[in-house]
Design a protein around this nucleic acid. Structure first.
Lengths: 288, 288
DNA sequence: CCACTCCATCAGCACTGCTTATCGAGCATG
DNA sequence: CATGCTCGATAAGCAGTGCTGATGGAGTGG
């Protein structure tokens, strides 16, 4: 199971074409064909149907494995190379939209920082492969419980902040006057399902006792402003950390009192942060 | 980064010898030397010091990556091959000592079952690589919260049982008469640290509020009987699921009332269980 | 019915990756 | 201080892998 073969397999599956994959990978069509044949012979099972080109059941299974595998491979290479290479003078920080609190911003150096707003899942991958030097992820958790992160690579995590969670409601909402809300009060509410911009409702699945939420509208993207505009317009409620939920025009933020979860943000980095990254880590961890 | 090179690297690091590694891998010493040289050139950093042979800082880092990586690779191969191969007539079930409740035993077929008691960490690996068809893992969790399992491969999990947690005390213990115990009552107690046989105390780290436990004796192994004998002899307390904690000579089981955690056991399997395994999965999942 | 696209297959060739053989450095021994 | 031994690096040689370019057969649209 050569990673090269795996890589051509996933591109063939993605493009649904041997020739296209060959073009993208810089091989001849013949080579791609041989790669797939080699893989199929090695594993003893057909992976693709030809005409049309589509993964078989076994091939689907392999695809599920291939992504994380190639990611880990990249991560390993990046991690080792990072140890040897000179520390870059810049600093790249990957973050979710809701993880970047004022405390973190204060710890960043004045110049030379690149900020990159990504999806929750993309951040560990970015840090592992060296696309970003540091990562900030957030999510809902029981107080002082660590977040559940996909372990794409051996990364180091530090909790850097915890704060209460708020429900964002449009100003006219019947519950907008409350001082606190229990999740049970909101069982029948319409929610915005915005896993990448706000706090994902899926995190509450366990605490909720099995009752599924009714997502009114699914929002894919990382822009908080349009998301809050959607709740202001009455398209559904949103879960946000308190500090980012307050002061948004057309909305009211009400504290979530039950279940007892907090918005937790954690700092991620690879093996040995160097240069500016090390400095930021030191400052943030010392404070916590 | 050929997996072959990675494999020889880890064996060289493990054996601290090029020649020994060559013997174990069935290569010549020359080949091993060339493998390491190729890896070092590819990554642009020395990975091993020679004389004595030991990993450098970068090499240590690579070692951390290599294990999970090779494991995932095996898992991927096993998973795909499993789809194509005929369903084995036997059934191998990997389990922790405390996960095997009476409910599970009832669902097993009368003959053809191999039971394999392993460490918590070994079970996902065994299921992923096909060493076992099914796995049972257990641990402490908030009610109806899933366990935190290392994701070595895309595995499917089903919760199959939850039950209260008990503290196992020697009969003469001052707290043995209680009907329920809070963790705070036991802050000064001596605990047996037996992560592979009993429930690992580390799982309570978060709920405990930061106070570390004092492990009196560390027990490595998966035999429950000698472990319970140790607590009976007063060497320290043990955390067990209620059903396995009751009726052990020389000990008393007292319910743990706070924090509110349960002993949860989950069933693990790869992509598509076949034959006898599928039947067991169906039965256990339907019941839950 | 023909032209075209797409994947499989074949032949040829360069190069990789192994082996055997040899060397040099470190280390113990007499 | 010389000698023998172990261990890893290096050189040369050779077989097999893995690529390219060319050709063939199957399906598809005009």
């Amino acid at each position: 199971m050569d990673p090269h073969l795996l890589r051509t397999y996933v591109t063939v599956a993605r493009l649904a074409s041997f020739s296209e994959a060959a073009r993208e990978l810089g091989y001849t069509q013949s080579a791609v064909s041989q790669h797939i044949a080699a893989l199929e012979q090695d594993l003893g099972a057909p992976l693709l149907t030809r005409r049309p080109v589509a993964p078989t059941a076994a091939g689907e299974r392999l695809l599920e494995h291939a992504g994380p595998l190639l990611l880990r491979l990249d991560a390993a290479r990046a991690d080792v190379v990072r140890m040897a290479a000179a520390p870059a003078h810049g600093l790249t920080l990957a973050t979710t939209p809701t993880a970047l609190g004022p405390g973190v911003l204060g710890a960043l150096p004045a110049a030379g920082v690149t900020l990159r707003v990504l999806t929750r899942d993309e951040i560990p991958a970015a840090v592992a492969t060296g696309t970003a030097d540091l990562g900030l992820v957030d999510g809902l958790a029981a107080p002082s419980d660590p977040l559940r992160l996909p372990d794409v690579a051996p990364l180091t995590t530090h909790g850097v902040a915890e704060e209460p969670v708020s429900v964002l409601l449009p100003t006219g909402h019947p519950l907008a006057g409350r001082t606190g809300l229990r999740l049970g009060d909101l069982a029948d509410a319409r929610w915005l399902d915005a896993p990448d911009a706000a706090l994902p409702l899926a995190h509450l699945r366990g605490a909720n006792g099995g009752g599924a939420f009714r997502p009114a509208l699914r929002y894919e993207g990382t822009d908080l402003r349009t998301l809050t505009a959607l709740t202001a317009a009455g398209h559904g409620l949103t879960l946000l950390p308190r500090s980012t939920a307050t002061g948004i025009p057309g909305t009211v933020a009400v504290a979530l009192t039950a279940p007892r979860v907090v918005h937790r943000t954690e700092l991620l980095h690879g093996g040995a942060p160097r240069g500016a990254a090390a400095e930021v880590v030191r400052q943030l961890v010392e404070r916590a």
